[in-house]
């Protein structure tokens, strides 16, 4: 579903991604872990071209994102993204946050878009918040709205960049619960996370990134139970 070949990304003279190769299959949940500054966010952002790729290929469902002729807006609407800081639109209600994509990108009528949005709100447990503004929500509620906003575009892939790291500990559970449900429904997911418990339980595969490359990848039980690379061992000994 996603194929990444020899992906390089530099900011000026600072090479952040130094040749990433990865293959993500349909319905797979891939968790990305690694130390701060190792390029996890940059890698994820290259998957929907929020960062311009310096060299290499990112192929999503047969479309090569580095092809200059590609319609990137179309592809972005198929690839949902959830951010660490939610990035809800503060001037729009919860419902409007969710419907703006379907209305403006897919050309739906307002009523039609709301028919899509309401079940999603229910799914993330926030039916009663449809008319609230984001500032009145807790962090965990905001993140669940952000997930619903992405889902409203009916993406085939969801990218999560540390979706729970800005949350108070007691709010993390609700968000992870929603993500688990998504995984169970067969959503293809790439999740950058510090939640090792989630990676172990929900991940089909875990990638360990360090210094701009994927140092090790394996099934969760293997990677967490018996890491081969000394860098992985060192990292896990610090976080577990």
């Amino acid at each position: 579903m996603i194929t990444v070949k020899d992906l390089h990304k530099s900011f000026g003279s600072n090479e952040v991604l130094k040749g990433i190769n990865a293959e993500i299959k349909e319905k797979e949940v891939v968790c990305v872990i690694g130390p701060s500054g190792s390029g996890k966010s940059t890698f994820l952002r290259c998957l929907n071209l929020l960062e311009e790729v310096t060299s290499g290929d990112v192929i999503i469902q047969g479309d090569n994102l580095t092809d200059p002729k590609i319609n990137i807006n179309k592809i972005r609407s198929r690839v949902g993204m959830v951010f660490q800081h939610f990035n809800l639109f503060p001037h729009k209600t919860v419902l409007e946050n969710i419907t703006i994509g379907p209305i403006k990108v897919k050309g739906m009528k307002k009523a039609e878009a709301e028919k899509v949005a309401r079940p999603l709100l229910e799914k993330v447990g926030l039916s009663d918040k449809a008319d609230a503004y984001p500032e009145s929500l807790s962090g965990g509620q905001k993140q669940r709205v952000a997930i619903a906003r992405s889902l409203a575009m009916e993406p085939s892939i969801m990218l999560f960049d540390e979706p729970t790291s800005a949350l108070d500990p007691e709010l993390v559970g609700d968000v992870l619960e929603v993500m688990k449900d998504l995984a169970k429904e067969g959503m293809t997911m790439v999740v950058v996370t510090h939640e090792m418990g989630f990676a172990r339980e929900v991940g089909d595969r875990v990638l360990f990134m360090d210094e701009g490359v994927i140092m090790e990848e394996d099934l969760p039980e293997k990677l967490f139970g018996d890491p081969q690379n000394p860098r992985t061992q060192e990292f896990l000994s610090k976080v577990l």
């Binding site: 929907n48 929020l50 807006n73 179309k74 972005r76 609407s77 690839v79 949902g80 993204m81 951010f83 800081h85 990035n87 809800l88 639109f89 503060p90 001037h91 703006i100 994509g101 403006k104 990108v105 952000a146 906003r149 992405s150 409203a152 575009m153």
Partner: peptide, 29 residues
Amino acid sequence: DKGQEEAGRSIGLTRNQTMRYIIWPQAFR
């Protein structure tokens, strides 16, 4: 915040749509 534009673009809005529906209304306030 830069994240507003990124959120707009990531749901598939074009650059102009993001400016018009997301950035401009907030900036205007």
